[in-house]
Amino acid sequence: MAKPMPRPFTVTSTHLISPNMRRIRLSGEAIANYPDDAEGCYVKLVFPQDSESKPLLRTYTIRQIDYAAQWMDLDFVIHADGGPASCWADSAKAGDTLHIGGPGPAKRISLPADWFLLAGDMTALPAIDNNLKRLPEDARGYLLLEIITEADKQAIDIETIPAGLEVIWILNPHPGDLKKFSDAICQLPWLEGQPSIWVAAELDEVLKARRHIKAQPAIETGSLYISSYWQHGMTEDRHKVAKRESL
């Protein structure tokens, strides 16, 4: 099946939900053709370059969607030295337009399981938020979240977190540089029973975490998702190449 062509969307609102995360609401008629469970799916944002260059594509997760009103929310981590998507989000205002392709399939945490490990940095918060909504009320295990500042805790909906998940906050003002995320995963006590594991963050971090997880008792096929959403010091295009070679 051919992938749907990018379609135009219009910014209807934008606001900071934490010091380092901006939420942008985008409206577009294309949402009428999105699947019923598009929350947590990824979309491709199209940033045109000069006439001789291909446009830049950047991947983001749908945080929330309203089919009747035809809008969706995307969350952007704001960096001082950000790429095209972060810079666009930081200056976007109501009425601005952007072409968006997709959606592509969501990466859901596997159910059921004896216990769960969800871990990610701020780039993974929209996907983690949607996975938390799918967990059973009696879910137990760990929720490990790396954020830039204490105030960035506001970027996650704590009401969706099952009481049986131990929440571990990692403060790292230099994500992808100081390897606090993977160190924290390596220090977690391994629980009894079969786990379901979902991990997404910077490439070097998840490679280290994967080596540790693979050294634990065997995990059932389909119950392990580990992915990198970005690479420290690299553009998304170069990161994709490194990701294919490493994961």
Rank of each mutant, 00 (worst) to 15 (best):
M122S: 11
G83Y: 07
D96R: 03
L57E: 10
A92I: 02
D96G: 08
D75I: 01
F47N: 03
G82A: 04
G120M: 11
F47K: 06
Y67T: 07
R58Q: 08
T61G: 07
T61D: 00
G104S: 11
Q64C: 09
M122I: 09
F76Q: 09
W88N: 15
S51V: 11
D129K: 05
V43C: 01
A127D: 01
I62D: 08
W88I: 14
V46Y: 08
P112Y: 03
W88T: 14
Q64G: 00
I109R: 12
Y42M: 10
P84N: 05
I65S: 11
A113G: 01
A80V: 00
L56N: 07
Y67H: 14
L117S: 10
L125V: 15
I62Y: 06
I62N: 09
A119Q: 03
Q70G: 05
P55A: 11
Q49I: 07
S51A: 14
N130M: 14
G120T: 13
A119I: 04
A113N: 00
D73S: 15
Y60V: 09
D129L: 05
A69S: 15
W71H: 09
F116G: 07
G95T: 11
L98D: 03
I100M: 14
P126D: 09
P112A: 14
Y42E: 03
W71Q: 03
G83H: 04
T59W: 13
N130Q: 15
G104D: 09
Q49R: 15
A127I: 01
D121E: 15
W115T: 08
D50F: 03
R58M: 07
P48K: 02
H99C: 09
D75C: 04
A124T: 02
A127G: 10
P105R: 01
V77G: 00
Q64T: 06
D96P: 06
M72F: 12
S86G: 10
F47I: 02
N130V: 15
A69R: 15
P84I: 14
A94H: 02
F116A: 02
T97W: 01
G104H: 06
W88Y: 13
G83K: 05
P55F: 10
A94E: 15
L56H: 08
P112E: 15
L118S: 07
I62P: 03
A92T: 07
S86A: 08
D81N: 11
S110H: 14
C87S: 12
D81M: 00
I78E: 00
A85G: 05
W115E: 06
P103Q: 14
V46W: 03
S53I: 00
M122Y: 01
L125R: 00
I62E: 08
K107I: 04
P103M: 14
P103G: 15
D50W: 02
W88K: 13
G95Y: 11
I78P: 00
G95E: 11
L98S: 05
R63W: 05
D114L: 12
I109Q: 12
A68K: 13
P84K: 04
L111F: 01
F76A: 13
N130P: 10
D81L: 05
G120H: 08
S53K: 12
T97R: 02
C87T: 11
R63Q: 13
P48N: 07
F116R: 05
L98C: 01
Q49S: 12
L56R: 09
W88Q: 14
I78K: 02
D90I: 00
P55C: 13
G82K: 05
Q70S: 09
W115F: 12
D75S: 07
A94L: 06
